[in-house]
Design a protein around this nucleic acid. Structure first.
Length: 270
DNA sequence: CGCTAAGTCAATG
DNA sequence: CATTGACTTAGCG
C-alpha cells in the first residue's frame, strides 16, 4: 500500500452531511461550481461508502440542492457539452460551517425572500442572456478578451437595498478538508483586502467566489472577492458565461433582463 | 429533553 | 434533472 491517500473512512459513513459533502465538491473545483454528475463523482471517488445505494443518497442530495439557499443553480453555458445546470455556493453562505459541526449547522442558511427573489431574477436573466449570446448564427464566446467598450450606465431606479447581511466572518472550513488532495495555490490570503473600490473596476463578477484569479476587464482588474459598486458596473463577468457588456441589453429592448447588471447586495465580498 | 437541521420517500414537472 | 412536501431521524445545547 503506497498510502491511504484519501480520507479513508473505508466503507464507513463519513461524518459529513450531504450539504458538507456537496460544498466540498463544489469548492474543490477550479470554477467553484459543478454539475450534479461531478458532485456525485467527487463523493463516490472519495468516499467508498457512497458507492452503494446511489439511488437513495443521490436523491437526498438533490433534495438538498433545491431546498437549501446556500446552493445556487447557474445555467449551463450552451456551448458547453453536458446536461444539467451548474451548482455553486452562495457567497454569503461560505461560513456556513464555521465554528460548527459538519454534521449539523447551527442554523440553516436562508435568504431573505427579497434577496432570494432578486437572485432568481438575476439567474433567470442570465439564462436569457445565454440564449441571446449563444444564438444560432455562431457561438462567439467573448470569453478570453472582453474588450468592452461601453460607458458606465446606472440602471434607472437601481435602488441598492442593502439588506443587513453582516458577514465580517472568516473564510471556509471546507477548504481545509479537501486540501490534502489539492495543493492549489488558489485563494490567497489577501482575501477581503479589497472591499469597496471607488475607481476603475468596472465589472461585476456574477459569482465572486467562482474564479480563482482576478479577472481582467475593461478598465482594470476586479478581484473575485471584491465588492464593486453598481454604478461602476458596465457588464458582467462570469467564469461560465464570459463577459457581457451592458450595452446590448437595455431595459427597453429586453424587459426584465436589465437587472442582471445590477449589483446584488447578497453577493458582497467574502 | 426540545428544537430544528438533516435525511428519506415519493409525487410531479 | 429539479422542485416540493410530508414525514422520520438524529445532533446538539
Amino acid at each position: 500500500m503506497p498510502r491511504p491517500s484519501r480520507e479513508s473512512y473505508g466503507d464507513q459513513k463519513p461524518p459529513y452531511s450531504y450539504i458538507s459533502l456537496t460544498a466540498m465538491a463544489i469548492w474543490s473545483s477550479p470554477e467553484k461550481m459543478l454539475p450534479l454528475s461531478d458532485i456525485y463523482r467527487f463523493i463516490t471517488e472519495r468516499f467508498p461508502y457512497y458507492r452503494r445505494n446511489t439511488q437513495r443518497w443521490q436523491n437526498s442530495l438533490r433534495h438538498n440542492l433545491s431546498f437549501n439557499d446556500c446552493f445556487i443553480k447557474i445555467p449551463r453555458r450552451p456551448d458547453r457539452p453536458g446536461k444539467g445546470a451548474y451548482w455553486a455556493l452562495h457567497p454569503a453562505a461560505l461560513d456556513m460551517f464555521e465554528n460548527g459541526s459538519l454534521l449539523r449547522r447551527r442554523k440553516r442558511f436562508k435568504l431573505l425572500k427579497t434577496d432570494k427573489d432578486r437572485l432568481e431574477n438575476e439567474l433567470a436573466a442570465l439564462a436569457n442572456i445565454n440564449r441571446f449570446m449563444f444564438a444560432p448564427p455562431q457561438p462567439s464566446v467573448p470569453d478570453t478578451t472582453p474588450a468592452a467598450t461601453h460607458l458606465v450606465h446606472q440602471a434607472p431606479g437601481t435602488t441598492i437595498t442593502s439588506s443587513p447581511v453582516q458577514r465580517p466572518k472568516r473564510s471556509f472550513t471546507i477548504e481545509s478538508l479537501i486540501s490534502p488532495d489539492k495543493p492549489s495555490a488558489d485563494t490567497e490570503d489577501d482575501v477581503v483586502t479589497t472591499p469597496v473600490t471607488t475607481a476603475p473596476p468596472v465589472a461585476f463578477l456574477y459569482n465572486p467566489v467562482a474564479v480563482a484569479n482576478p479577472t481582467p476587464c475593461y478598465g482594470g482588474l476586479v478581484h473575485p472577492t471584491s465588492y464593486v459598486h453598481p454604478s461602476l458596473v458596465t457588464g458582467l463577468v462570469h467564469p461560465h458565461i464570459g463577459f457581457y457588456p451592458q450595452h446590448p441589453l437595455t431595459a427597453a429592448e429586453h424587459p426584465g433582463v436589465s437587472n442582471v447588471f445590477r449589483f446584488s447586495p447578497t453577493l458582497r465580498s467574502v
